[in-house]
């Protein structure tokens, strides 16, 4: 297993290299000018000499490959450059915000797994029954609904109409310390919306898995032995129905990141995805580049996790692949 993990990491390294290079190549091909971005409004009045000097200082006059290599070697020592929009080193931005994003994503994932499994078992018991039809239709509709729209409607309903939950942010504006209770109440809406946007996939998978498993011989055998419906459903059908889903959990990272980009922006959650959007709207290249690479690393990690789970859950699969 360790060998496979090592091999996968070796495969991930060139992918990350190509992605970092791609990021620099796109930036080089675009009308984006790092010197103007760095100088900001001062760049409009600065003399050409100053701009040239700045260009040399920033190393922008170097060819693409040199710039990429400089960034890469600096990045390996932990220096990712400075963010112009947040006015602090990129590494600090990531350090400060990553935790909040992980908290949000993990809670949302938990919501999706628990709700998806529960509803999936209930619907999978009687495929085509009224419960299955209602929940499945709702799941298809939710899958088609954009997460930002769900988030806005949730804000309108829970924060404005019912006034039971805060509309956004991490803490109340009045408070200047971060307390557990505040974070917990501010987490509910974004985590619920992100979870619900991931829910359809889990639900449909569990439903299909359970419905298929109920048709198979082990379940028939269990029923013939007179086991209770509960044991048959949870002990036999769900267990084999969950198997393929568990292994695909890691491959949901891209969708989770996509959802987080939208949900964090809607709820002003101080996470890394909201910072990505900020970096993009103000063309903050160092931050955007670092976060794009970070997201790619997260996706590759998810794939690795998925492969490892596959091997653990199903002993027939070897770890040599």
């Amino acid at each position: 297993m360790a060998r496979m993990a090592g091999r996968r990491t070796l495969f991930a390294a060139p992918v990350l290299l190509v992605v970092t290079f791609g990021v620099f190549a796109v930036a080089a091909a675009s009308p984006f000018d790092p010197v103007k971005a760095y100088a900001g409004t001062a760049g409009l009045t600065a003399s050409q000499d100053n701009l040239d000097q700045l260009r040399a200082n920033l190393g922008v006059d170097q060819p693409l490959v040199t710039r990429w290599w400089d960034w890469l070697t600096a990045a390996l020592t932990g220096d990712l450059g400075d963010s112009s929009v947040l006015r602090q080193p990129v590494a600090d931005v990531i350090g400060e915000r990553l935790g909040w994003s992980v908290l949000l994503a993990a809670t949302a994932f938990l919501v999706a797994i628990v709700l998806g499994t529960g509803l999936g078992v209930l619907a999978g018991r009687r495929p085509g029954g009224w419960l299955d039809r209602c929940v499945s239709s709702a799941a298809y509709t939710l899958e088609a609904a954009p997460a930002f729209w769900l988030g806005l409607l949730a804000i309108w309903f829970f924060a404005l109409k019912l006034d039971v939950l805060p509309a956004g942010g991490l803490t109340d504006t009045a408070s200047d310390t971060v307390t557990f209770g505040q974070v917990a109440s501010h987490l509910v809406l974004p985590a619920a919306v992100l979870g619900v946007s991931q829910l359809p996939w889990f639900f449909l998978y569990v439903r299909q898995g359970v419905a298929d498993a109920l048709e198979e011989d082990p379940v028939r055998g269990a029923r013939a032995r007179g086991l209770s419906e509960r044991t048959v459903l949870l002990g036999h059908a769900l267990r084999s129905g969950m198997l393929p889903m568990l292994t695909l959990v890691g491959s949901r990272v891209p969708e989770l990141i996509t959802g987080a980009l939208l949900v964090e922006t809607v709820f002003s959650w101080p996470g890394i995805a909201a910072a990505t959007v900020q970096a993009a709207t103000s063309v903050d290249f160092p931050l955007l580049a670092a976060l794009t690479v970070l997201a790619t690393a997260a996706v590759l990690l998810g794939n690795l996790l998925s492969d490892l789970l596959y091997g653990i859950a199903d002993p027939r699969v070897g770890f040599d692949g």
């Binding site: 992918v15 992605v19 990141i257 996509t258 980009l261 794009t292 997201a295």
Partner: peptide, 8 residues
Amino acid sequence: SSVPHLLL
């Protein structure tokens, strides 16, 4: 495919 689509 390794870069999340919306992010790309």
